[in-house]
Design a binder for these strands. Structure first.
Lengths: 199, 199
DNA sequence: CAAAACATAACGACCGGTCGGTATTTGGAG
DNA sequence: CTCCAAATACCGACCGGTCGTTATGTTTTG
């Protein structure tokens, strides 16, 4: 393996280990030594690639939010009609609710630190704004295509984002992660009912 | 001052200091020594009244959630009609958004630890369930009084709770805390529009 | 051989919790 | 009311351990 591949592999190992540990135990409760052990590297390698523990956190926030954003955009673009797209999106969240053990932990960790650490806040706000804009565009599209009416796109976009976030919060409390996708769908149906054109 | 008053005062000082510090810096990043300093008591006094740092956290979760519950119940009982009550409630959250510096931090701290610590989870789930029931009852009342229709009370209750939580999350990200009460009101109007009886 | 990539040990700061001792209050006996 | 011992409330130095970070040395690559 050449230096480039070796470097990349080490960095990847560290970030994966950090992701799972931050998600499970939180940033403060996770030690650098612990990360190194799980990644199978030494502290020397760790501090060769990252200048601090915080730097790892910021780095994985970045990649994680990017992945989220790409996924979100994919779904919204492929939808036939806006109401269908929203319901489909809600259904797609079910696997996240039940399978992805990391998601909730990281989600909360990210938010907590965004509220305390200015760097984290900045790294979080920007993508979050884009999420909001994506939702807002979706609503505008719905109005244009005639499936929605009588709503302020900005308000409805924010409403959708808040609802999604709130559902993640609520689902994280429950041990039984089943059926949350379905519950979110039903909530969105009520919402759509408030925004839909009447025949 | 007699022993009872003295004891109560010390305990109160510790809990107030812990509340503000946990809210600002988080549970892990707040030292017992720091709490003691801000409370104006010694470590001896601290460990005389609480068996551990965690015990303080659990204790203040309890009092905080109780206060929240009482406030929530007050608002829902006093409302004339359900839609009016919901809108009024949303408006009442504005001061929380902008004034209460502690609320957001504690809210996030509570949720983060509920996801990791089983004791905290249990202390959180129970009141949260009651919040949900309160909302559900409110929806049922709306159906009975004829201002709402065509909704599953359980779904709508959960929807309202998720939306509120999501709004707190979103507002915590922003530096400008103004107008969030108004935004929540407009969101609830859309919601009500999806649940309201048509004339 | 030089540079990049990694390993190891050690450092200094800090943390939650303990413990022997001290000040204050209490309740009853004189 | 005074005295005093027991109970209560509090103090602060200290301990064992952990933490993030760094300095120095070693291996691997170009």
């Amino acid at each position: 393996m050449n230096n480039l591949q070796r470097s990349a592999q080490t960095k990847k190992s560290i970030m994966e280990a950090a992701t799972s540990l931050f998600a499970r135990d939180g940033f403060e409760s996770t030690g650098v030594a612990e990360i190194c052990e799980q990644a199978g590297v030494s502290k020397g390698a760790f501090y060769y690639h990252f200048e601090s523990k915080e730097a790892v956190f910021l780095s994985l926030i970045d990649t994680w939010l990017n992945t989220l954003e790409i996924t979100l955009n994919d779904v919204t673009y492929q939808a036939k009609s806006v109401p269908e797209g929203l319901l489909e999106m809600a259904g797609m969240m079910q696997p996240i609710f039940e399978n992805n053990q990391y998601f909730m932990g990281l989600f909360l960790e990210l938010w907590t630190h965004a509220n305390r650490n200015e760097k984290v806040r900045q790294a979080t706000v920007a993508p979050y704004r884009r999420f909001e804009e994506t939702f807002t565009r979706l609503i505008k599209r719905g109005i244009e295509e005639g499936t929605l009416e009588n709503v302020e796109p900005e308000i409805a976009g924010q409403l959708l984002l808040s609802l999604s976030s709130g559902f993640f919060l609520q689902a994280s409390l429950e041990n039984d992660k089943g059926n949350w996708g379905k519950k979110l769908q039903e909530s969105i149906e009520i919402l759509l009912n408030g925004m839909k054109r009447r025949n």
